[in-house]
């Protein structure tokens, strides 16, 4: 079993190096090379990510007046406004409702998709995987515009459904949450498929045969043996999809339009239409904070639950 040896080797590597040994009286000889080597990457990271983030956070503390512009004061007024105003509550709630539904749908569609893909034979598997991952190669904007064409009241979906006679009047997809959820799910399902695919790769194919030989029906094998082993993959995929869905901009902007705002489009409007940069910054900071809290919380849960089994 390579895994057993792997852990053993890993512990060997991490066991006492001279620096952490009992002889602490020695003058400290710190090895600076790793830090120096990672310096360029750290500098890039700082200038491109940390600096703008800090500036956004600072900006969110300023205040804004229609005649005075941005005033250089440090107050929590913007945050208080968001907390007090029902309109903002609605936007944030909608954002996370959409993100949650998209995550759920991605899991429900993506996990079986990955499993079926893995069971396929050689030429088809590659072709189908390409089709599934294909959307990632197309720009979000053109893909979403495609959905807008399909969704319209004279779009293909409504015409098809009416032609078949399932519906009498067109269903509203454009400028509705349903439309945004469908389009976002299409965009984000490949991430779920990839994540579940990775955990399926680690599955010993004989394990399913073992369960069969013990008398399990095929569906029981899926539920009791395969699913529990890919749960970590589904959960990490969910984290990715949730984060991307909650902060998605292009799809809600095109499908949701002006009327159906989510946090990202709200922040954008505050910046570019209302020109209330501090309020937009506050929205962005809150979105980031909420995202981090939810994701870190979920990750903790996953780790605690599966630590014992999978390392």
């Amino acid at each position: 079993m390579t895994t057993v040896e792997d852990t053993r080797m890993a512990t060997d590597i991490h066991t006492p190096t001279p620096a952490t040994g009992p002889t602490t009286t020695r003058p400290e000889t710190r090895n600076w090379t790793p830090y120096l080597l990672s310096l360029p990457a750290l500098a890039l990271f700082a200038t491109l990510l940390v600096v703008p983030l800090v500036m956004t956070a600072l900006l969110s503390l300023n205040s804004f007046g229609f005649y005075t512009g941005i005033e250089n004061v440090w107050r929590l007024d913007n945050y208080l406004e968001i907390v007090r105003d029902d309109y903002f509550h609605e936007v944030f709630l909608r954002t996370f409702r959409i993100a949650f539904l998209v995550t759920l749908l991605s899991a429900v569609i993506g996990a079986p998709e990955a499993y079926i893909l893995r069971r396929m034979r050689a030429p088809w598997r590659g072709i189908c995987l390409l089709i599934v991952l294909g959307p990632l190669l197309i720009s979000v904007v053109s893909r979403t515009l495609g959905w807008a064409l399909l969704f319209g009241s004279t779009g293909l979906i409504n015409q098809g459904l009416m032609g078949v006679g399932l519906i009498a009047t067109p269903i509203e997809f454009m400028y509705t949450e349903t439309g945004v959820v469908i389009a976002l799910t299409h965009v984000l399902v490949p991430f779920m498929v990839l994540s579940v695919w990775a955990s399926l790769q680690r599955l010993d194919p004989q394990v399913e045969n073992a369960a069969l030989s013990l008398g399990a029906k095929p569906f029981t094998v899926l539920r009791r043996v395969v699913l529990p082993q890919v749960v970590p993959g589904i959960l990490s995929g969910s984290i990715i999809v949730f984060a991307l869905a909650a902060s998605a901009f292009a799809t809600p902007a095109i499908i949701g339009g002006r009327r159906l705002k989510v946090a990202a489009t709200l922040a954008y409007d505050e910046f570019l239409n209302t020109l209330n940069w501090p309020l937009g910054a506050a929205v962005a900071v809150l979105l980031l904070a909420a995202n981090i809290v939810i994701i870190v919380g979920c990750n903790r849960l996953v780790e605690r639950r599966y630590k014992q089994v999978f390392e």
Partner: peptide, 9 residues
């Protein structure tokens, strides 16, 4: 099985 194929979970 040669690989044992135990259920890891």
């Amino acid at each position: 099985f040669q690989s044992y194929a135990l259920f890891p979970h």
